[in-house]
Protein backbone atom coordinates (compact mmCIF):
# COMPACT_ATOMS: atom_id res chain seq x y z
CA UNK A 1 0.00 0.00 0.00
CA UNK A 2 2.17 2.94 -1.12
CA UNK A 3 0.70 6.18 0.08
CA UNK A 4 0.71 8.19 -3.16
CA UNK A 5 1.08 11.86 -2.39
CA UNK A 6 -2.24 13.78 -2.61
CA UNK A 7 -2.17 15.54 -6.00
CA UNK A 8 -2.54 19.30 -6.32
CA UNK A 9 -5.90 20.22 -7.92
CA UNK A 10 -5.54 20.56 -11.72
CA UNK A 11 -6.57 24.23 -12.00
CA UNK A 12 -4.14 25.16 -9.23
CA UNK A 13 -1.36 23.14 -10.86
CA UNK A 14 -2.09 24.72 -14.22
CA UNK A 15 -2.00 28.20 -12.72
CA UNK A 16 1.27 27.43 -10.94
CA UNK A 17 2.92 26.07 -14.08
CA UNK A 18 1.69 28.78 -16.47
CA UNK A 19 4.68 30.78 -17.86
CA UNK A 20 4.10 34.33 -16.61
CA UNK A 21 7.47 36.10 -16.65
CA UNK A 22 8.29 38.91 -19.10
CA UNK A 23 8.56 37.57 -22.63
CA UNK A 24 11.71 38.56 -24.48
CA UNK A 25 12.16 38.05 -28.20
CA UNK A 26 15.49 38.45 -29.97
CA UNK A 27 16.06 38.20 -33.72
CA UNK A 28 18.02 39.63 -36.62
CA UNK A 29 15.13 41.76 -37.85
CA UNK A 30 11.48 42.59 -37.42
CA UNK A 31 8.93 43.54 -40.04
CA UNK A 32 5.61 45.03 -39.10
CA UNK A 33 2.91 46.33 -41.43
CA UNK A 34 -0.26 48.08 -40.39
CA UNK A 35 -3.05 45.53 -39.66
CA UNK A 36 -0.39 42.91 -40.03
CA UNK A 37 1.45 40.68 -37.64
CA UNK A 38 4.86 41.39 -36.21
CA UNK A 39 7.26 39.06 -38.06
CA UNK A 40 10.66 38.30 -36.58
CA UNK A 41 13.26 36.64 -38.78
CA UNK A 42 16.76 35.33 -38.33
CA UNK A 43 17.96 33.34 -35.26
CA UNK A 44 14.68 33.97 -33.46
CA UNK A 45 14.46 33.24 -29.73
CA UNK A 46 11.38 33.75 -27.55
CA UNK A 47 11.96 33.28 -23.84
CA UNK A 48 9.84 33.69 -20.75
CA UNK A 49 10.55 32.48 -17.25
CA UNK A 50 9.97 28.77 -17.91
CA UNK A 51 9.36 28.49 -21.64
CA UNK A 52 11.82 28.95 -24.50
CA UNK A 53 11.04 28.72 -28.21
CA UNK A 54 13.45 29.17 -31.10
CA UNK A 55 13.43 28.93 -34.88
CA UNK A 56 14.02 30.84 -38.09
CA UNK A 57 10.82 32.89 -38.27
CA UNK A 58 8.30 34.00 -35.66
CA UNK A 59 4.89 35.50 -36.30
CA UNK A 60 3.76 37.13 -33.07
CA UNK A 61 0.22 38.24 -32.41
CA UNK A 62 -0.48 40.13 -29.18
CA UNK A 63 -3.89 39.26 -27.75
CA UNK A 64 -4.04 41.96 -25.07
CA UNK A 65 -3.40 41.74 -21.32
CA UNK A 66 0.06 40.35 -21.97
CA UNK A 67 -1.29 37.27 -23.80
CA UNK A 68 0.10 36.30 -27.20
CA UNK A 69 0.09 33.70 -29.94
CA UNK A 70 3.50 32.76 -31.34
CA UNK A 71 3.90 30.77 -34.56
CA UNK A 72 7.48 29.65 -35.07
CA UNK A 73 8.83 28.01 -38.20
CA UNK A 74 12.21 26.34 -38.33
CA UNK A 75 14.32 23.53 -39.67
CA UNK A 76 13.25 22.48 -37.07
CA UNK A 77 11.78 24.87 -34.51
CA UNK A 78 12.34 23.97 -30.85
CA UNK A 79 10.51 24.30 -27.55
CA UNK A 80 11.96 23.83 -24.06
CA UNK A 81 9.70 23.87 -21.01
CA UNK A 82 11.92 23.68 -17.95
CA UNK A 83 11.22 21.07 -15.31
CA UNK A 84 10.03 21.85 -11.80
CA UNK A 85 11.51 20.55 -8.56
CA UNK A 86 9.36 18.63 -6.12
CA UNK A 87 7.53 20.95 -3.74
CA UNK A 88 5.55 19.75 -0.74
CA UNK A 89 3.26 16.98 -1.92
CA UNK A 90 3.79 17.83 -5.60
CA UNK A 91 6.40 15.57 -7.22
CA UNK A 92 9.14 16.95 -9.47
CA UNK A 93 8.32 17.35 -13.17
CA UNK A 94 11.06 16.62 -15.74
CA UNK A 95 11.74 19.17 -18.50
CA UNK A 96 9.77 18.82 -21.73
CA UNK A 97 11.33 19.47 -25.12
CA UNK A 98 9.63 19.58 -28.49
CA UNK A 99 10.71 20.06 -32.04
CA UNK A 100 8.92 20.25 -35.39
CA UNK A 101 8.77 22.27 -38.56
CA UNK A 102 6.05 24.46 -37.05
CA UNK A 103 5.30 25.33 -33.45
CA UNK A 104 2.25 27.37 -32.46
CA UNK A 105 1.98 28.44 -28.82
CA UNK A 106 -1.07 30.28 -27.44
CA UNK A 107 -0.32 31.74 -24.02
CA UNK A 108 -4.00 32.19 -23.29
CA UNK A 109 -4.93 28.50 -23.34
CA UNK A 110 -1.36 27.34 -22.75
CA UNK A 111 -1.35 24.90 -25.65
CA UNK A 112 1.65 24.32 -27.94
CA UNK A 113 0.83 22.59 -31.22
CA UNK A 114 3.87 20.91 -32.77
CA UNK A 115 3.59 19.73 -36.37
CA UNK A 116 5.81 18.56 -39.20
CA UNK A 117 7.94 15.60 -38.12
CA UNK A 118 7.02 16.38 -34.52
CA UNK A 119 8.94 14.95 -31.59
CA UNK A 120 8.37 15.58 -27.87
CA UNK A 121 10.40 14.30 -24.97
CA UNK A 122 9.46 14.41 -21.31
CA UNK A 123 12.39 13.36 -19.25
CA UNK A 124 13.38 10.13 -20.99
CA UNK A 125 9.96 9.43 -22.54
CA UNK A 126 9.66 10.19 -26.24
CA UNK A 127 6.68 10.70 -28.55
CA UNK A 128 6.89 11.20 -32.31
CA UNK A 129 4.10 11.76 -34.80
CA UNK A 130 2.80 14.19 -37.39
CA UNK A 131 1.05 16.46 -34.85
CA UNK A 132 1.52 16.66 -31.11
CA UNK A 133 -0.36 18.95 -28.71
CA UNK A 134 1.42 19.85 -25.51
CA UNK A 135 -0.58 21.50 -22.74
CA UNK A 136 2.17 23.60 -21.17
CA UNK A 137 0.11 24.64 -18.14
CA UNK A 138 -0.78 21.07 -17.26
CA UNK A 139 2.25 19.34 -18.81
CA UNK A 140 -0.04 16.93 -20.66
CA UNK A 141 0.62 15.59 -24.15
CA UNK A 142 -1.78 14.47 -26.90
CA UNK A 143 -0.56 13.10 -30.20
CA UNK A 144 -2.17 12.29 -33.55
CA UNK A 145 -0.69 10.33 -36.44
CA UNK A 146 -1.96 12.64 -39.12
CA UNK A 147 -3.05 11.34 -42.56
CA UNK A 148 -2.39 7.61 -42.23
CA UNK A 149 0.72 8.23 -40.13
CA UNK A 150 1.38 6.72 -36.78
CA UNK A 151 2.24 7.97 -33.33
CA UNK A 152 5.19 6.28 -31.70
CA UNK A 153 5.66 6.54 -27.97
CA UNK A 154 8.48 5.20 -25.84
CA UNK A 155 7.93 5.37 -22.09
CA UNK A 156 10.97 4.58 -20.00
CA UNK A 157 10.09 2.46 -16.98
CA UNK A 158 10.20 4.56 -13.91
CA UNK A 159 12.71 2.09 -12.25
CA UNK A 160 14.84 4.60 -10.61
CA UNK A 161 12.37 5.44 -7.79
CA UNK A 162 13.16 3.44 -4.59
CA UNK A 163 10.54 0.66 -4.30
CA UNK A 164 8.08 1.46 -1.48
CA UNK A 165 8.03 -1.09 1.35
CA UNK A 166 5.93 -4.16 0.51
CA UNK A 167 5.40 -3.37 -3.18
CA UNK A 168 6.58 -6.13 -5.59
Amino acid sequence: QDASPTRESRPRAAERLRPVGPVTVTATSVDWAKNGMMIYTGDVKLSSDTLNLDGDRLELEQLGDGEYRARIIGKPAHLLHSGTPASGETPADPPVTARGRTLVFDSKNGIADISGDARVTRGEDEITGETIHYNVNERRIQAAGGSGGQVRIVIQPNNRAAPAAGTP
Binding site: T24, V25, T26, T28, V30, Y40
Partner: peptide
Protein backbone atom coordinates in the same frame (compact mmCIF):
# COMPACT_ATOMS: atom_id res chain seq x y z
CA UNK B 1 16.15 48.05 -28.92
CA UNK B 2 17.59 47.38 -32.36
CA UNK B 3 20.60 48.39 -34.40
CA UNK B 4 18.55 50.01 -37.16
CA UNK B 5 15.08 51.23 -38.01
CA UNK B 6 13.06 51.94 -41.16
CA UNK B 7 9.55 53.39 -40.82
CA UNK B 8 7.59 54.14 -44.00
CA UNK B 9 4.99 56.70 -43.13
CA UNK B 10 3.03 56.13 -46.30
CA UNK B 11 2.93 52.31 -46.25
CA UNK B 12 2.76 52.50 -42.44
CA UNK B 13 5.33 49.79 -41.96
CA UNK B 14 8.02 49.56 -39.29
CA UNK B 15 11.19 47.50 -39.74
CA UNK B 16 13.68 46.93 -36.94
CA UNK B 17 17.02 45.82 -38.33
CA UNK B 18 19.90 44.04 -36.62
CA UNK B 19 20.19 42.63 -33.08
CA UNK B 20 16.53 43.16 -32.29
CA UNK B 21 15.58 42.66 -28.66
CA UNK B 22 11.91 43.12 -27.76
CA UNK B 23 10.52 42.68 -24.25
CA UNK B 24 6.79 42.21 -23.76
CA UNK B 25 5.08 43.20 -20.53
CA UNK B 26 4.13 39.92 -18.75
CA UNK B 27 0.50 38.95 -18.25
CA UNK B 28 -0.94 39.97 -14.88
CA UNK B 29 -0.82 36.83 -12.61
Amino acid sequence: QAKGLKADWEQQTVQLLGNVRMQYVPRKP
